[in-house]
Design a protein around this nucleic acid. Structure first.
Lengths: 352, 352
DNA sequence: TTTAGCACTCTTTTTGTTCGACTGCTAACA
DNA sequence: TGTTAGCAGTCGAACAAAAAGAGTGCTAAA
């Protein structure tokens, strides 16, 4: 995907200026603006000539003949691959991140919070995709009181999920022991994700005499998993409305539509593969609906959880800042998770 | 608040038509439209005379001289108090509600889901306010494994909250028993809401030798409570954008602003008192920011949880449908909760 | 009391005009 | 050969004027 093309220094300068100017202002950039920026190192006429050539090789576009130039998808690509300088986050952003990236109870909650922080810093929607590869190691049933059972699911990696079940009739101790044994046999090695399915098929087969207890368990787990599976999009709509690209209703609807269409987001998330920040710009997307959007994403593996985090914005996104933010947050998260690993990872229970 | 005023039948007819027409179309209603609707039972000129009188008593307004009429706040009020017929929900809506109002694990989850359903049916933002008056009855600590403790909080009403705590150093059995005793002494009778505060002050006093365990508990509870306290607003932004009142960016921002301003929403929620559906229209609100909005709300008490559910819309809201929906959902919820009560209430653990 | 009809008002839509922002090109210049 | 000043040309944005349309209020008559 990396774009090579031999541009002379002046063309690089001009392209850089146009991209960065447009990212900031959302207005097409005129030759005069560039000439002034370089204090008339070259005249606007010269720049016009250069711009024309840049347009011919497809790096720039002109909304209409009497307008300035705007980067094309190829233009952004060239900029991202060759011209962009590393962004240094402002102290404000760094402080915000430092104060807000913290460890919550569970890995999931910690990551959700991180997605929220990223969305706030970049003022763009952040999409979080968590794939929990953890499998169940051990099941424990405790009788809390006469009519309350506690089922504790411990996973291979050491995380714990627990569910409280209220039952109608008292169950004798030995029955509970039996169920405990059976559950261990049936569930050991089951990935957390497929737990509800495995459980419901178990209810229909060997374990049907415990169907009361187990279906209560299934309902509760199902709710949790149902909750998480619609892609986890974090964004502040109010501030999105301030972005010129989304300040009209139709564009806003388009964006919301993209964000709520599982298929689109899933396809995007699945394609994230590299273990670093990756960027897909406008028409580089497979889906035409995304032709005006860019996605900056990060693939990170923490413990047994494969996490993908993506930020969706207009093509005119501050790529450098987005990358810097994702990387910085990622490092913070790595610290948190590795520290937890040392101590004894996690703080408490899996919530939300 | 109920409005009385002697209108003759024809005026009532006309007012009703104007309100209902405007609720449906969002366009000022013209005399001609009304005349046609009644198949020229009376001429448009007659209706114009009537409309003028209705305007004089303050029930109608005219956006400008050559426009039709729009109900004033007083007009809506008169309609709601005297003219409105009971709405019969469509089969589609009833089916949707029947299929989606179900009991989830906890009361909170069930109510949140209900708020979501209401928001979907009415296509308006729904605000949920849960005030849990339940107090802690009993605390139990279980040692799940060497480094994992489970703390179970049972409330007076029988609901259960539990938290898993991972600890660094193994704690001997007798220490745990001691902590358990102390916790019971300290927490019994504490309302769930003030748990984090009580806990953190306990850490600073008698219980400070268990601060490791207790602060982990506090963090986890804090997260939960922090999550819930920003008022629980359920809405689908995408479809809100289709409502004429919110289809421009500024109005949308205003709405989002209202919904995210705790003070406004809290004040509104606190005022909800009657044990039935109540309606506040436009300028009847204390807060001028709400002058273009109406709130239809429901106060329901389930078990130990005082629940208030409000729907916020433009003044041009379909009040009859809103009322019908709230009532219908409320009945469904009452069924669910009373059934749970019988069986053994709840299904499982408190989640989310 | 009702109503037909018309003058009047105000908004919305359309059309026309001007203004300004840029470019592209040409011709001159270094 | 590359650079630049200058100017004609293009197009959008802003503004103004004109026309169309929607409704009312009022008058006068039924």
């Amino acid at each position: 995907m990396v774009m090579h093309m031999n541009l002379d220094e002046r063309k690089k300068k001009i392209l850089t200026t146009i991209v960065e100017n447009y990212i900031e202002s959302a207005e097409p950039v005129a030759s005069k603006t560039i000439a002034e920026k370089y204090e008339r190192e070259f005249s606007s006429a010269t720049i016009r000539n250069e711009m024309k050539q840049l347009e011919e090789i497809g790096l720039l576009e002109q909304p209409h003949i009497s307008a300035g130039r705007v980067p094309s998808t190829k233009g952004y690509r060239y900029y991202v691959d060759n011209l962009m300088k590393e962004n240094i986050l402002t102290m404000v952003d760094i402080d915000y991140i430092n104060n807000n990236i913290v460890s919550y109870g569970s890995i999931e909650a910690t990551l959700e919070n991180a997605a929220n922080v990223i969305s706030k810093v970049l003022n763009l929607p952040a999409v979080l995709h968590i794939e929990n590869k953890d499998v169940i190691e051990n099941v424990k049933i405790l009788k809390v009181s006469d009519k309350i059972l506690l089922i504790i699911l411990m996973s291979k990696s050491g995380t714990v999920k627990d569910v409280i079940i209220k039952i109608t009739d008292t169950v004798p101790e030995d029955k509970i022991d039996e169920l405990n044994k059976l559950l261990n046999q049936n569930l050991k090695g089951t990935p957390l994700e497929s737990l509800p399915n495995v459980l419901s098929s178990a209810i229909n087969n060997q374990l049907n005499k415990f169907s009361d207890i187990l279906s209560a368990l299934a309902v509760s787990l199902n709710y949790e998993i149902k909750e998480d599976s619609p892609n986890n999009v974090k964004t502040d709509i109010k501030s999105l409305l301030d972005i010129p690209e989304f300040s009209n209703t139709d564009k806003m609807k388009e964006l919301l539509n993209i964000l709520s269409t599982k298929e689109i987001i899933n396809e995007v998330m699945e394609k994230i593969k590299e273990d670093d920040v990756s960027i897909v710009i406008g028409s580089e997307h497979h889906d035409v609906l995304l032709k005006d959007y860019s996605i900056i994403s990060l693939d990170m593996d923490n413990l047994n959880v494969n996490t993908k985090l993506a930020v969706l914005g207009p093509k005119r996104t501050d790529y450098a800042k987005a990358i810097a933010t994702l990387k910085y947050v990622n490092n913070k998260l790595k610290n948190i998770f590795s520290k937890n690993e040392e101590d004894v990872e996690g703080g408490s229970q899996e919530r939300r």
